[in-house]
């Protein structure tokens, strides 16, 4: 199975290299390191969000409210910054994480305690959190001139040759990698996605684990809220509207099975990078946004087809055994 995952990620990596190669034929500067660093930085927020979504999807759930959570939390920290510019940025980041955690915990509690399917819960909170943004802001925007320069420049500061935003993404990727491969909760997340019943018997609390993954995706949504607002320097009710679909698309392209249980940190990161490259490169080489959408859409379908083929391979092994049995 491990080889199989590797196989799938290498496939995706090969696709990305091919894509970069193709773009380079039209836009020679694309593959140079400075530009690739730029693409990575531009994709950082999507990568972080895709990781948060990944842990949810692994448990056979989905979080549709991530973009709304991002919008709400972003608005809260932007308003705080506008009203109290003295609050240091690390404190604002902690606040963003906590606000996101609360929103995620609400999803998690509804899924855990009331046993409502997550798609229904988060479809509801998708609307509620965006509505709440309107309520706290009164529909007003927070513009760049209302934000402190620290607020805006924190993520842009260069550190060892990369912007802080890229370092945050790298730290989150590393953290998720450790959590998924080296901790009890990471193992539990995989196990309940593959076989919830066997997990119950093995002493894993499935409901509590689902609650935890929604807390994780909530915190990620909150963190991304600050990063997004300080990057695009505007907070409004419309921020990241519909972006939850890009997040899910990144996961699907990255080989994370919507049916749960299958997926890896590397896959989610590569899936996000793939989308990031498409949205960065195509405008530069004069491909219309409509083609961009078509290409992203085709990538999703292609990824699902390839993954389904992969799963069929696996199925064939089981079948062969069923024959012998």
């Amino acid at each position: 199975m491990k080889n199989f995952f590797k196989y799938r990620e290498i496939w995706l990596l090969a696709g990305i290299v091919l894509l970069i190669g193709l773009i380079s034929t039209r836009f020679p500067g694309f593959a140079n390191p400075a530009n690739l660093r730029q693409v990575f930085n531009d994709t950082s927020i999507l990568m972080i969000l895709a990781l948060g979504q990944m842990v949810v999807i692994l448990t056979r759930s989905i979080d549709l409210s991530m973009a709304s959570n991002l919008c709400f939390t972003g608005m809260v920290v932007a308003m705080l910054n506008a009203a109290h510019p003295a609050i240091p940025i690390p404190a604002l980041i902690v606040i963003a994480l906590l606000v996101g955690l609360v929103l995620g915990a609400i999803n998690g509690l509804l899924v855990w305690r009331l046993n409502i399917p997550s798609i229904v819960v988060t479809l509801g909170t998708l609307t509620i959190y965006r509505g709440a943004t309107f309520v706290v802001s009164g529909g007003a925007w927070v513009n760049a001139d209302q934000m402190s320069s620290d607020f805006i420049n924190f993520q842009r500061a260069a550190f060892l040759g990369l912007p802080v935003l890229s370092w945050i993404a790298i730290a989150v990727i590393a953290l998720f990698f450790v959590v998924m491969t080296r901790t009890q909760i990471g193992r539990s997340i995989h196990a309940i996605g593959v076989n919830p019943t066997a997990s119950v018997y093995a002493g894993i609390d499935v409901g509590r684990t689902k609650f935890i993954v929604f807390c994780i995706s909530g915190m990620i949504g909150g963190l991304a809220g600050y990063l997004w607002i300080s990057r695009y320097v505007i907070a409004s009710v419309e921020v990241a509207n519909g972006y939850e679909l890009n997040i899910i698309a990144a996961c699907v392209i990255g080989g994370i099975s919507i049916a749960g249980g299958i997926g890896s940190v590397g896959g989610a990161v590569l899936g996000a990078l793939f989308l990031g490259i498409i949205s960065n490169a195509l405008p530069v080489i004069n491909i219309s946004p409509f083609w961009q959408m078509a290409i992203s859409g085709s990538a999703i379908i292609l990824a699902v087809v390839l993954n389904a083929r992969g799963e069929r391979r696996q199925g064939r092994i089981i079948l062969r055994k069923a024959e012998a049995a």
Binding site: M1, H190, A191, V194, T197, S199, Y201, I318
Partner: peptide, 15 residues
Amino acid sequence: QGVVIGLPIFQNVSL
């Protein structure tokens, strides 16, 4: 209810 197909043997045993 028993094995978790898709996880390696050692992870099944230690679950």
